[in-house]
Design a protein around this nucleic acid. Structure first.
Length: 724
DNA sequence: AGCACGCCGACT
DNA sequence: GTCGGCGTGCTC
């Protein structure tokens, strides 16, 4: 009886594959990486365990080629976490497991065992380099406290000095780091009374699973709280994982942490690293004390994990939007639960779902309301009530006046409109056709040709990516006189150019920004070459604009009362960011918000610059308006390439949320599927369905759908992890 | 997914 | 005659 093993492979086929071990191999540990023949190719797979029997005839099974023992096997906790993701996000286990590895280790090409850590030799510990070799002496002193990784040496521009130490025999590269030598913590600022109280309640929570939501207004010292808890975890000999949204933030934060914990071993992990550095740091992770990184770090090997921190937990970059569509925040919670460690979620504008969990007492809520910085420089927030004002191409008179004044003073303005393109739809005045997308429920957005690009004269679906040329006449009634409906950034730019002929206007949205354009834009803004920036939410995330004294916010109302709570949530975070950017050191800025609903409670929080209770206010508002109680609404997002996949998704939806109020599912079907006769009805059901409708759909249409050949399905869920 | 096989339309 | 379109099947 030959020994069989189950192997997970990086294929969209959501099943495991059985292989034979060649005679005399004994057993292979679960988690080991193996090279196996698959189809006509060779693939790297992950061994999950022995196979007791196989559905395939044993003599048809193929043999494992070799065990890749040049790299560590995946540990049991990572296998378990991947299994959770496979179930939770409906994604093939093998694809997840391989995705947790740095790219270098995903193929069978042997690699030179990486040596990420630089540590001192005995000679190095005693060495006394000449006084003039200042840099070498400094590095020696640093290394006497703790080893550094090659990547850190590189970012701190120490590679050359490191090489010199190695050449002198004072230091050597090592695959694993020795324990950190120093355990004392550098002086930390005194905790505020609030921080002290938070700390007192959090310290006893270390050592077991718990989700702690730290809702701290900007400047209230969230980071200080993380640092103190990390310190306590490190003191127990455990590791801390710190997840942050943006790569750009890593170097600053790393320095901040490093200063605070001299002698501790740090590693960073994000997609901005070169492949070699990423591999090295991944290999260094098991030996580090603090791992700081973006969402992919949530899958890093950390055998002594004692705490997970998710900073800016509301941030959308924790969600991967393609492939395995996971939320690193949610995976972090799952990992913390499996590892029985606490997780801290920190934010000044917590996501509503996290906030609701706190209100339901599933998460512990810790509020930090005291602000260190004064309110003096915060901008005045003015509401322009659109109920009584006429609009000229989407702009009210006070808005235009404010722009004119700012321009006259030689200061800069920012105009925020969260809709790119020329107009959100094309409209037929004679039959009310409004450019529907043939593939989904959205409207096709009218993009107009520009001097730079005539190819962009098209109708585009911002939802599913469908594109088509602009019809010369109404497809429904033949009327040749189609009108642009509403305002997009492109049209706004046109309007402003006509209104303020002297102004230098620059539009910032996905259509105008190339990946590297940010630096150039920053220079242009700082150099005073731009008077007015017009753009979408890209602007809210941008850099600091020091002479920007006016922020004008158009068209908030759709998001204000959207049934999709995320739209409201995003709006609030964006308004806050824009508000925070208006004004300069010597002069508070002005923020003008055009709205037909100036009484919305959200604005009261903004005007008072009091963000502490905004989530509660929004929840209360939703309740009053009888919008779906989102705590029970499960948000599902599917990318179904076949009807079969869409169906499986719907079944999952119905099972997951027995008391579901509504499902909002977007199904993008490939072109051939669009010809399926029942697609239209299916789409309508998919887009908005009650649970009964879902079940009826599943029951009635199953036989017919069975005749459609299932193709590959890619889809995932975006749901609250504690409800699964 | 990625790749091969296979059956029909327009080309050197 | 055959080049190549994509419909269909298969991967331990």
């Amino acid at each position: 009886m030959p020994s069989l093993i189950q192997v997970a492979l990086d294929t969209p086929l959501d099943r495991l594959f059985d292989y034979r071990l060649p005679d005399g191999w004994g057993s292979v540990q679960p988690g080991s990486l193996v090279e196996v023949p698959f189809g006509r190719t060779l693939q790297v797979g992950v061994v999950l365990g022995p196979a007791t029997d196989s559905a395939i005839q044993v003599d048809k099974l193929r043999k494992v080629i070799r065990v890749l023992d040049d790299r560590p096997a995946l540990t049991a906790d990572i296998l378990r976490l991947a299994q959770f993701c496979a179930d939770y996000y409906h994604y093939p286990l093998g694809a997840i497991l391989l995705a947790t590895l740095p790219p270098r280790l995903r193929n069978a090409t042997p690699f030179v065992a990486e040596m990420p850590w630089l540590m001192l030799t005995d000679a190095g510990r005693a060495a006394e380099p000449p006084a003039r070799a200042k840099a070498q002496r400094a590095l020696l002193d640093t290394l006497r406290q703790a080893p550094w990784t090659r990547d850190e040496l590189r970012t701190h521009k120490q590679s050359r000095h490191a090489a010199a130490l190695v050449a002198a025999g004072w230091a050597e590269w090592s695959r694993a780091a020795p324990p950190a030598a120093v355990t004392q913590t550098a002086g930390s600022p005194p905790a505020t009374a609030e921080q002290a109280a938070a700390l007192a309640s959090l310290l006893p929570a270390l050592g077991q699973f718990g989700v702690h939501l730290i809702h701290g207004v900007t400047g209230s010292g969230k980071t200080e709280l993380y640092l103190r808890l990390i310190d306590a975890v490190l003191a127990r000999g455990l590791q801390a994982l710190v997840l942050i949204p943006e790569i750009a933030l890593t170097p600053q934060l790393e320095q901040h942490f490093r200063r605070r914990f001299p002698g501790r071993r740090f590693a960073t992990l994000h997609s901005g690293l070169a492949e070699g550095a990423r591999t090295e740091n991944w290999l260094a992770a098991p030996d580090c004390d603090v791992l700081l990184g973006t969402r992919l770090s949530v899958f890093a090997p950390l055998p002594r994990l004692g705490l997970i921190v998710v900073d800016e937990e509301h941030d959308a970059s924790f969600k991967q939007q393609d492939g395995l569509r996971y939320s690193a925040r949610d995976v972090a919670i799952a990992r913390a639960k499996q590892g029985n460690v606490p997780v801290l979620l920190g934010s000044a504008t917590p996501s509503l779902e996290s906030y609701a969990q706190a209100q339901n007492a599933r998460y512990q809520l810790i509020e930090l309301k005291q602000r260190a910085i004064s309110q003096a420089q915060l901008p005045a927030i003015e509401l322009v009530d659109l109920k009584h004002l006429p609009l000229d191409n989407g702009l009210s008179r006070p808005a235009v006046q404010a722009l004119t004044d700012t321009l006259a003073r030689g200061e800069q303005s920012l105009v925020f409109l969260n809709r790119r393109g020329y107009a959100p739809a094309l409209y037929c005045p004679s039959c009310a056709w409004v450019s529907p997308c043939p593939r989904c429920s959205a409207r096709l957005v009218f993009h107009r040709a520009t001097p730079h690009s005539t190819r962009s004269h098209r109708l585009k679906c911002h939802h599913c990516g469908f594109e088509t040329r602009i019809p010369p006449e109404c497809p429904s009634c033949g009327n040749p006189d189609l009108k642009a409906l509403g305002q997009g950034t492109q049209r706004l730019e046109e309007t402003l150019t006509a209104l303020l002929p002297g102004a230098r206007i620059r539009r910032i949205d996905r259509d105008t920004m190339r990946p590297r354009a940010w630096a150039e834009l920053g220079e242009a803004v700082h150099g005073g070459e731009i008077d007015i920036l017009v753009g979408t939410q890209m602007l809210a995330k941008g850099h600091d604009f020091p002479n920007m004294t006016l922020a004008l916010i158009l068209d908030t109302d759709g998001a204000l009362y959207s049934p999709d709570f995320r739209a409201t949530e995003r709006l609030f975070a964006q308004l806050m960011q824009v508000a925070g950017r208006a004004g300069r050191a010597d002069k508070p800025g002005r923020v003008l918000i055009q709205t037909a609903f100036p009484d919305h409670p959200l604005f009261r929080h903004l005007q008072r610059h009091d963000y502490s209770g905004y989530a509660r206010t929004l929840l209360a508002e939703r309740k009053q308006l009888e919008l779906p109680p989102f705590t029970r609404q499960v948000l599902l997002r599917a990318e179904a390439t076949t009807m079969d996949a869409a169906l499986a998704f719907l079944q999952r939806a119905a099972a997951l949320a027995p008391d579901i109020g509504g499902v909002s599912v977007f199904a993008a079907t490939p072109a051939p599927m669009a010809r399926v006769a029942n697609l239209e009805r299916a789409q309508r059901l998919i887009q908005s369905a009650s649970r009964q409708a879902l079940q009826a759909f599943v029951r009635d249409w199953r036989p017919q759908l069975d005749t459609i050949r299932p193709r590959v399905a890619r889809w995932s869920l975006d749901v609250d992890p504690t409800s699964a």
